[in-house]
Computed example of a mutant assay.
Amino acid sequence: MSIFSEQDPRPLLREGSRRAGWALLAGTFVIAIVLTLLPAPYVIDRPGPTYDTLGVVSVDDEEVPLIRLVDQPEYPERAQLRVTTVTRVGNPNALPSWVEVVQAWFAPERSVTPVDEAFPPGISVEDNREAARIDMENSQQEAIAAALSHLDIDFESSLEVAQAVQGGPSEGVLQEGDLIVRAAGQRVGDVTALRELISDNGVQSPISLEVLRSGEIRSVEVIPRMSEGQAPIPVIGVLVAGRYDFPLQVDIELGSVGGPSAGLLFALGLVEKLTQEQIAGSLRVAGSGTIAANGDVGPVGGIRHKVFGAADAGAEWFLVPRENCGDVAGVSPEGVTVIPVDTLSDAVDALELAMSDQELPRCD
């Protein structure tokens, strides 16, 4: 008797291989479905919409100027001066899927950040939104102040405490409605100046403040703490709003956009509207940067996303705070020239150079 089977084993092997293949395919499909449904502990940033500060926006289904001068002459303009934004996908209450995160990792115009870095523990989504709203309001006020300063138009300014953050170093010391007159012995009239004095003071010793409360000047002290997030800085735990007495009324509408990074383009748009000779001609310009009342331009986040957003909107020039030059290294969407600036005056000068086709500053 033969110890070997006379039956050909190959059909059985082929059938087993087919079954294994189908099982592997089914398993892969199940894993893909699970990854699609499972939330990932990250948020995704991508280019957001852009808004022309010389154009119109929709408010309650009505088209209104983004920047409007009330009872003031406006000079005609042909340029586009576009505010760029970043759209964030996800928050601690609504995380993106793993599939979305993996796709974002391979997209040059997107970035992925751990949710705990984007939304530090102890700070709610609502707190983030409220802080962004106040930053936007301050940005608009400081942009108007910067534009008027650039045009040598006088105005008065002060700082008002909008909220002392619960559990922060100013809780029980500063109150809503306090007007901050001095910090570290120096008179302050804008948010940027106050932030710089707090940063210079550090967190090892208290900073002295003089506030106007109920008609009386009071002296208080607050020990700053380091903020949470990716770039910690000394803070005193208050939301402060700039209060200005301008000689003209300026209305700025930008819907639900928050944060301080539109300040530079707000200021440029206002200078263009108030200047008889056009500062931007018919240029298509976009950009981002904080603005101080004295015209200083500060760094912002999401510059890489914003450059791609500017390219999508057809911008030819992108104004970037010089401190953000490192963030755009190697990022060069076709047709967009990046111009670094330190001040509002630098930005105005750069636009004049671009109009006359002269050599422009570049990031080192």
Rank of each mutant, 00 (worst) to 15 (best):
E6S: 11
E6Q: 10
Q7N: 08
Q7R: 14
Q7D: 09
D8K: 04
P9W: 09
R10D: 07
R10C: 00
R10N: 08
P11H: 07
P11V: 06
L12W: 14
L12G: 15
L12H: 14
L13C: 09
L13S: 08
E15D: 10
E15V: 09
G16Q: 13
G16H: 08
S17T: 11
S17C: 08
S17A: 14
R19C: 09
R19S: 12
A20S: 12
G21W: 11
G21L: 14
W22A: 13
A23V: 12
A23E: 10
L25P: 01
G27Y: 02
G27P: 05
T28L: 15
V30C: 10
V30M: 12
V30D: 06
I31N: 01
A32I: 11
V34E: 09
L35Q: 08
T36N: 15
T36S: 15
L37Y: 11
L38R: 15
L38A: 15
P39V: 11
A40N: 06
P41Y: 07
Y42G: 05
Y42P: 06
V43Q: 01
I44R: 05
I44M: 05
R46L: 05
R46V: 03
P47I: 04
P47N: 07
P47G: 05
P47S: 08
P47E: 04
P47V: 06
P49F: 03
P49K: 14
P49A: 12
Y51W: 06
Y51A: 08
D52T: 06
T53F: 06
L54P: 02
V56P: 00
V56R: 15
S58F: 01
S58Y: 01
E62H: 07
E62V: 13
E63Y: 09
E63A: 11
V64L: 01
V64D: 01
V64R: 05
L66N: 02
I67Q: 00
I67T: 05
R68K: 12
V70R: 10
V70P: 00
V70T: 07
D71K: 09
Q72K: 12
Q72F: 10
P73Q: 10
P76F: 04
E77I: 11
R78S: 13
R78V: 02
R78F: 11
R78Y: 11
A79E: 02
A79G: 10
L81H: 07
L81Q: 05
R82G: 08
R82H: 12
V83F: 05
V83S: 01
V83A: 03
V83G: 02
T84K: 02
T84P: 00
T85G: 00
T85R: 03
V86S: 04
T87C: 02
T87L: 14
T87E: 15
R88H: 04
R88Q: 14
V89Q: 12
G90E: 01
P92W: 02
N93G: 13
A94E: 13
A94G: 07
L95V: 06
S97G: 13
S97T: 10
